[in-house]
Design a protein around this nucleic acid. Sequence first.
DNA 1: TTGCCAATCGGAACATCGCTCCGTATGTTT
DNA 2: AAACATACGGAGCGATGTTCCGATTGGCAA
Lengths: 185, 185
Amino acid sequence: MAGKRADARRNEETLLDAAAAVFVADGVEAPVRDIAAKAGVGMGTIYRHFPTRADLIIAVYRHQVEACAQAGPALLESCATAYAALGRWINLFVDFLVTKHGLAAVLRGDQAGFEALHAYFLDRLVPVCAQLLDAAAAAGQIRSDVEALTLMRGVGNLCIGAEHDVRYDARKMVEVLIAGLRPQP
Amino acid sequence: MAGKRADARRNEETLLDAAAAVFVADGVEAPVRDIAAKAGVGMGTIYRHFPTRADLIIAVYRHQVEACAQAGPALLESCATAYAALGRWINLFVDFLVTKHGLAAVLRGDQAGFEALHAYFLDRLVPVCAQLLDAAAAAGQIRSDVEALTLMRGVGNLCIGAEHDVRYDARKMVEVLIAGLRPQP
DNA sequence: TTGCCAATCGGAACATCGCTCCGTATGTTT
DNA sequence: AAACATACGGAGCGATGTTCCGATTGGCAA
């Protein structure tokens, strides 16, 4: 960040703003050309700053992902039970995903070119989820045979397409999924 | 089907076989050109028989979807409880999805060009699911505030990407989801 | 059997992607 | 102010879904 030319720094800022605006308007899968046009720069400029679309998406949402990650331990502290903390943390994650058009869809592991995005989300959030999961399991509040990575991907998948069909209630499915974690009778 | 020329009928058959083979080998998102090449026909031939990729996918899997739909009432008959029938039927659906590379991903409602596929699956399977769901709810075996369409889409979403990452256990997530349907204490 | 014509076919061509490449422009430094 | 490294713009590439139209061919009438 230090040895960068002034115009380069300015362009990076402009690009982040333009990308954020386009993502809100057209969703995360908006063409790179649209973002370049909105920012008033050429294609080359985007790709020099963000080697792949995934890197741009990561940069735009980094702050919110960090906030979500840091909320984990805080909730564990402030909630009555570990299970309650887990539920509220998952809700934070779901709120984040469903308000970003198409982000959940692009977070999937099976789409080529988005490995970096997938890896970033998982690297950052799975340990947090694991901590909450372990605490709840240790207290006997949930079954103990569910991996944090599987749960995170399951929740992410449930959020796919939530914004395109009012008949599909992603939040309710996540609620049911979390309820299903309780020890079986 | 009646007034069709012999070569047209033959090509349609050839195309279905080729598509099925390519789907097994490369997944449902395989390029149309590959399917045309495998079948030994031109691009135009594919699009005359199947106006869109979705129509081809529907045609290839129609039999299996029908079988799944018809298994619903049968399970309701043969299982001890409606909840058990629901669980086993969902498992049939999951088995179907996870063995077809990428089919779950393409079944999503948010992807342009696949509305026909999405609609077909939902039209055919949601009523079956609703019947099982209603029976279980009427018997007090599950909560009664979950719509069949939401459940079907949730299960479909949970199956996305199951084949690309052994660490993600889609079947377990579905199992947890179904467990979460039980009345809450 | 032959000849015709509509049904069918093949694949080039088009639009749209993500991404790369390189000649040009510009900021920094001396 | 000159020179050089850095950064920029956008044409271009390869891939993909889809359309279009001239060439081909099956099936029927004569």
